[in-house]
Write a protein that binds this DNA or RNA. Structure first.
Length: 619
DNA sequence: GTAGGGTTAG
């Protein structure tokens, strides 16, 4: 390659104030080093030195590049290119630039290939890593022990199952599958793709003593795939094997506890963290904050946040979302204002949380204002999630027609979640035509989703069109669509108890049903009138009479009323959204039994106290 | 220069 080749700096991010290639932004000592030794061998060192200072300033990166071009030496040796790519990748620089440098290096060595793959694996768009691996094989470059961990990381990020399996085979053929780094990368890959069984199989095949990373990878695979119980079981096994948990383990543990609403277990993890000093770890503290918020302990979440020595945007975002789902929309917005005052930059996820807060509190105008600011002031291109929030914002407020018009005008094609939001709103606010329309779209996008059938059937039922409601039920049976059974979890002592609708499997069943009868009797005295519309469509005639006592959250509450001291709070975690009848009943239970009851349903929290709910019947 | 982490609309 000729040494005087011209390079463009246009690939670098345009965050700098100007396009000058002068060194004015460098410190005087940096400048001195630069001007003093413009020889290639020393320039290499200068570049490394400068780039290591440049973590906070992409501007410097650009200057370094421009400077090296001026001296016509930057890429004249493979060694220099190798160094530049490595530093760029380490600083999460733009991959287009790294790729350009790479293409101008003659005979790149394996280190450089690996660095390029690593760069893509750690970037926003990891897919080119696969092509690079292929090119390596075409060029007869032998991958080494570092190649596969990097490559698998990229593939795991892409959730490309087939590709990963192919690479798994190639790695095996090359004899790399016995390497612990490759094995752990494979466990991670299978976990990330939702193939927990394959991950477990690989894990079990690993040599006798599994290291901490292997355990963490596997546990995280289960925690991230909505299998918290298995994650906790593995966590216990790990302890039995004498492996001590670290920060990574605790993040997975807290994630699992958050999903289960396992407050006591997570609380013990908190104590452990304090003991070993892991409460100072940013990732763990964020997971702890999120855990408390997801358990309805918003005070605790705020305390964790306040006491954090180091906070990131993730910490702020987690608390904003936490406040929003717990029904404290105003406080979520206050927190966002404070974030702005502190000069921090909200991420696109922060805006999801903020819009979510507006939508859960009925602040339609505010929501639209923030959406505009997000685009104009923060330059964030709205993703489908953001549009989802907007549709939800209109839907929850009962503006179903406007929500439909909004969907039609969106620049992105609506996905199943969007249509489901609309369908849900239709079934609450009674818009049969739009509901059927949404349902037609859902039949194309996700034909076997059981919740949609239930929503439409409830919609028909609320219009008293029993024939249509039953037709939906029959279609479900015919098409083999299985209804996900509603279940409720409660934590008593050290264990989690799970109840499903009409559950009779618990050892205390007799007492529970006696309590349910007593509850119903007292509630009727309080003027409780069963709100039966939705339930009626779901069950057969002979069950109608008793079915109302059978919803899993009621069974769970009866169980807790029996087994916990008077006046202590009861907390329930439910997998589906709470129905109107249960909502009304639990409000009254909180009054009659003088209990604070916290129910986390699929979409938000309900804090029941003295006959009212924190959602103000807005959900 | 090799593997694992936290926040996301229903």
């Amino acid at each position: 390659m000729p040494p005087q080749v011209q390079h463009s700096t246009s690939d670098l991010p345009h965050t700098s104030p100007s396009n000058t290639s002068s060194l004015t932004d460098l410190t005087s000592s940096e400048k001195a080093t630069f001007e003093e030794y413009p020889k290639p061998y020393i320039l290499k060192k200068c570049i490394a030195l400068l780039l290591s200072c440049a973590t906070t300033s992409r501007y410097k990166l650009r200057q370094v590049h421009a400077f090296s071009i001026r001296h016509g030496v930057a890429l004249s040796s493979p060694d220099m290119g190798k160094h530049l790519i490595f530093t760029l990748v380490s600083l999460a620089g733009p991959m287009s630039y790294a790729q350009k440098i790479f293409s101008q290096i003659q005979n790149p060595n394996i280190f450089t290939w690996n660095t390029l793959i690593r760069g893509y694996a750690e970037s926003e768009n990891p897919s080119p890593a696969v092509g690079i691996h292929r090119q390596m094989l075409v060029d007869s470059v032998q991958p080494d022990t570092h190649t596969y961990p990097f490559l698998l990381k990229a593939i795991a990020k892409m959730i490309a199952v087939r590709e990963g399996e192919r690479v798994h085979c190639i790695a095996m053929k090359n004899g790399f599958e016995s390497l612990v780094f490759v094995q752990n990368a494979l466990v991670h890959f299978y976990g990330a793709c939702g193939r927990a069984e394959s991950a477990l199989k690989l894990f079990e095949k690993m040599s006798e003593k599994k290291n901490l990373v292997a355990w963490n990878t596997l546990i995280n695979g289960y925690a991230m795939n909505s299998r918290p119980n298995e994650a906790l079981t593995l966590y216990r096994e790990m302890g039995l094997e004498g492996v001590k948990p670290d920060g990574f383990t605790l993040v997975s543990l807290l994630t699992a506890c958050a999903e289960l609403g396992a407050l006591a277990l997570g609380g013990r993890a908190h104590v452990y963290m304090l003991k070993v000093g892991l409460d100072k770890n940013l990732h763990v503290a964020n997971a702890l904050l999120d855990f408390y918020a997801k358990c309805g302990k918003i005070r605790e979440a705020e305390r964790v946040f306040d006491e954090m020595e180091e906070k990131s945007v993730v910490s702020w975002t987690a608390l904003i979302v936490g406040l929003a789902v717990n029904g404290f929309g105003e406080r979520a917005i206050e927190l966002f204002n404070k974030l702005e005052e502190e000069g921090l930059v909200p991420s696109e996820i922060t805006f999801v949380g903020l819009l979510y807060a507006c939508s859960h509190c009925g602040m339609v105008v505010k929501g639209f204002a923030y959406f505009e600011r997000m685009k104009k002031e923060f330059g964030i291109v709205p993703k489908i999630e953001h549009y989802g929030c907007m549709v939800d914002l209109l839907s929850r407020a009962g503006l179903v027609k406007q929500a439909y018009e909004y969907i039609q005008k969106m620049p992105l094609p609506p996905n199943a979640v969007i249509w489901r939001t609309l369908l849900g709103a239709c079934s609450i606010h009674g818009h049969l035509n739009l509901g059927e329309l949404a349902r037609d779209q859902l039949r194309i996008l996700e034909p076997k989703h059981c919740g949609d059938y239930v929503l439409l059937s409830n919609l028909y039922a609320s219009e008293r069109r029993w024939g249509d409601a039953h037709k939906i039920r029959r279609t479900m049976l015919k098409e083999g669509v299985k209804k996900v059974p509603g279940h409720s979890l409660v934590e008593l002592g050290n264990s989690i108890h799970e109840f499903v609708m009409g559950d009779k499997s618990h050892p205390q069943t007799e007492e529970i049903y006696a309590m349910l009868a007593e509850m119903t009797r007292l509630l009727i005295l309080e003027g409780y009138v069963p709100h039966t519309v939705n339930v009626l469509a779901d069950i057969e005639d002979e069950e109608k009479e008793t079915a109302l006592s059978y919803h899993s959250e009621k069974i769970a509450i009866a169980f807790m009323l029996i087994n916990t001291p008077p006046r202590t709070p009861i907390r329930v975690v439910k997998n589906l959204r709470i129905c109107a009848d249960c909502h009304l009943a639990i409000k009254l239970v909180s009054k009659v039994f003088e209990r604070e009851i916290v129910v986390r349903d699929r979409s938000r929290f309900h804090h029941f106290r003295d006959g009212t709910c924190s959602c103000r019947d807005y959900w």
